[in-house]
């Protein structure tokens, strides 16, 4: 017996979740309806958060806030985001096909905690924080949010309501690249997001996050440490690739072997890094 409740406000949704902790939250449905294909009638209950207007907004400026219900297509097509956080838009543009991007949401992409989620790496390198709303509201750095495939720090009564990050500075640039078994509608075999800070022709700082190479989206701290501070014209790219390959822990699955993921992640990272450096300044006008 599947019950259905579609609150119009966040407070109603939160109140309902306190009472009905086995209820599944549905938004775009592009993951939930796949996971429960032909077994939807066995779900105890559904709460559709799709009518909660306050979760559908994008606030731009020095501090950026994206509501959990913002769709992939809205992110991919958003002119301000395209200009300031192109890596995030690239990630959103590579989720499924148009039909999936029109329904699938930012919140859904994160809460299902797929190691291959396309939005997680670009948000992670932006230093994003997720806002979880339950009996109280808490902010969790995205880096601490994922606990394993399909597992997050969320409590059963919490709703992911927002993702927040600061606008990258003028001397920062980002990129997201994805490797799949075909060019569209493919779950990533490996993916990488990079954000760089360039100062005086040096790589003053960088953050790297990879998807599909570990149980959770993975920051490559050692590679970051290796390359941080290097002169752009003397970047030790080959050493960076090797370090990155050494610090990831991919597995064998239907989309690729551990060895292949390790091999391909190196050049994928190098290309993302160079693209990110190339994007410094280009995206910062206005």
């Amino acid at each position: 017996m599947t019950t259905y409740f579609a609150p119009s406000t966040l407070s109603k949704a939160v109140a309902y979740m306190q009472e009905n902790q086995t209820t599944k939250i549905i938004a775009g449905g592009t993951d939930l309806l796949v996971a429960h294909y032909q077994e939807l009638d066995r779900l105890p209950g559904l709460m559709d958060i799709g009518n909660i207007a306050e979760l559908k907004t994008i606030t731009t400026g020095q501090e950026v806030e994206i509501g959990a219900l913002v769709t992939h297509e809205e992110i991919a097509d958003h002119p301000w985001l395209q200009q300031h956080v192109p890596a995030l838009c690239q990630g959103a543009a590579q989720v499924g096909g148009p039909q999936i991007r029109n329904r699938g949401t930012l919140g859904g992409n994160l809460v299902h905690a797929s190691p291959a989620a396309d939005l997680a790496p670009p948000l992670m390198v932006l230093g994003a924080v997720v806002e979880l709303t339950g009996s109280s509201q808490v902010q969790v750095p995205l880096e601490e949010f994922f606990k394993g495939p399909g597992k997050t720090v969320m409590e059963p009564n919490q709703i992911l309501t927002k993702v927040k990050f600061s606008k990258p500075a003028a001397n920062q640039g980002g990129a997201y690249l994805k490797l799949g078994k075909r060019k569209a509608m493919a779950i990533a075999t490996a993916s990488v997001a990079v954000i760089v800070t360039v100062d005086n022709n040096r790589l003053a700082d960088l953050r790297i996050c990879l998807g599909s190479v570990a149980p959770v989206p993975l920051r490559a701290h050692k590679t970051e440490d290796l390359l941080r501070g290097q002169r752009l014209d003397l970047l030790e790219l080959a050493a960076g690739e090797r370090q990155l390959q050494a610090e990831i822990s991919p597995i064998d699955d239907i989309r690729g072997s551990a060895e292949y993921r390790r091999q391909a992640a190196g050049p994928l990272f190098r290309r993302a890094l160079l693209q990110a450096i190339n994007n410094v300044g280009v995206t910062q006008h206005g």
Binding site: G29, T30, L33, Q99, R103, M185
Partner: peptide
């Protein structure tokens, strides 16, 4: 396919293309 993988069930919902196998009618 029933899982949003093929697009055969595509319809427009408020002007946007959606896979109608991945939308609940009540939605």
């Amino acid at each position: 396919c029933g899982k949003g993988e093929c697009g055969a069930c595509t319809v427009l919902m408020d002007g946007k293309s959606v896979a109608s196998c991945l939308v609940l009618a009540i939605q």
